[in-house]
Simulated assay, not measured.
Amino acid sequence: MIGAMAAFAVNDACTKLAIADVPAPQIMALRGVMATVLLVALAGIRGALRQPHRLVQPVLAFRTVADILATITYVAALRYMPIANASAIFQALPLVVTLGAALFLAEPVGWRRWTAISIGFVGVVVIVRPGTEGFSVFSLLILASVLCSAARDLATRRMPADIPSFAVSAVTSASVMLAGFLLVPFWGWSPVRSADLLIFAVASVMLALGYICIVEAMRSGDMGFVAPFRYTILLFAIVLGFAIFGDVPDATTLVGSAIVIGSGAYSLYRERMRGRRPKLAPASTH
């Protein structure tokens, strides 16, 4: 999981570097070509594409659309925001997923986790700072990306177990790439420098590596133990943001981040504890 978060943070940094010269849909398209080639090749090696008919699922289509919208909103906002701030707001995702699972999947959520969710959203408000001089409208795009990502993750829980994860990753990457090409006529196409191509290549490799690492982490480890390590992406984002762009998060952003991470980690801890409780045998009837 730490490897996945490091890869995603490097991908974000590369995207932010490139987006100064290239529109967001063009980045989605070019980065998507390289990432899709890698993921399709890996999916083929793993035998994940042998039965393509299994991929014809409404829930997978919904997940793909949600992922496309999450990518568009995040990449569009990243041009105007420090990557540490964007990553800090995005740490609300586990809380939103827990909230969505309770509302739409009827998963049980006790009062402790409801409290953690409420406190976590207070932390998001602290980071976003609505109505103050530090407020950025692009923070709302990151929040939209969080909502779309939560919808994607909830849809993932509903996918049939026989759909290989590598196939899902390849289909998602190809769909994001196609969406980028379809949006290019509305956003324009900029000349691509050789340096930008190198950046896209690094971003594509990091994106594919992140997908692979996160799939392996979620499949081989205890989810309750592994999931909190998602928050390491904020550390990587702060380091990369300072080293590459000279960005230093202010105190308000750090306080809000601490609130969000603390509440999210506690919520994941409670979910882990709930999963460990022994289930009572059903009462016999006569």
Results as ranks from 00 to 15, higher is better:
123 G>N: 05
209 L>I: 03
48 A>C: 11
230 R>S: 03
136 S>F: 05
33 V>S: 12
273 M>Q: 15
73 T>Q: 01
182 L>A: 15
129 R>S: 14
1 M>K: 00
221 G>M: 14
273 M>E: 14
283 A>H: 13
146 V>W: 02
170 A>M: 08
173 S>M: 14
211 Y>E: 05
224 G>H: 11
278 P>F: 02
174 A>K: 09
137 V>M: 10
14 C>W: 02
129 R>I: 03
175 S>M: 14
247 D>R: 04
95 L>M: 11
158 R>P: 02
112 R>K: 14
143 L>P: 03
216 E>D: 13
30 L>D: 01
44 G>D: 05
71 T>A: 13
145 S>H: 00
270 R>P: 10
39 L>R: 03
178 L>H: 05
282 P>L: 09
59 V>D: 02
49 L>P: 07
160 P>W: 04
247 D>N: 12
67 D>A: 13
105 L>H: 08
96 V>M: 14
182 L>P: 10
120 G>S: 09
229 F>S: 10
10 V>Y: 02
274 R>A: 15
75 V>I: 15
169 S>R: 01
104 F>L: 15
49 L>V: 03
227 A>E: 10
198 L>A: 15
239 V>D: 02
225 F>Q: 14
185 P>R: 04
275 G>Q: 14
28 M>I: 09
118 S>E: 01
104 F>K: 07
159 M>R: 03
23 P>K: 06
219 R>C: 01
200 F>P: 11
285 T>A: 12
63 R>W: 12
133 E>D: 15
262 G>P: 11
8 F>N: 04
202 V>M: 08
185 P>K: 09
6 A>D: 00
81 M>D: 00
8 F>S: 06
17 L>P: 01
19 I>C: 05
220 S>H: 13
181 F>I: 15
279 K>T: 15
46 R>D: 09
29 A>E: 05
15 T>Y: 03
206 M>E: 00
84 A>L: 04
166 F>M: 15
285 T>H: 09
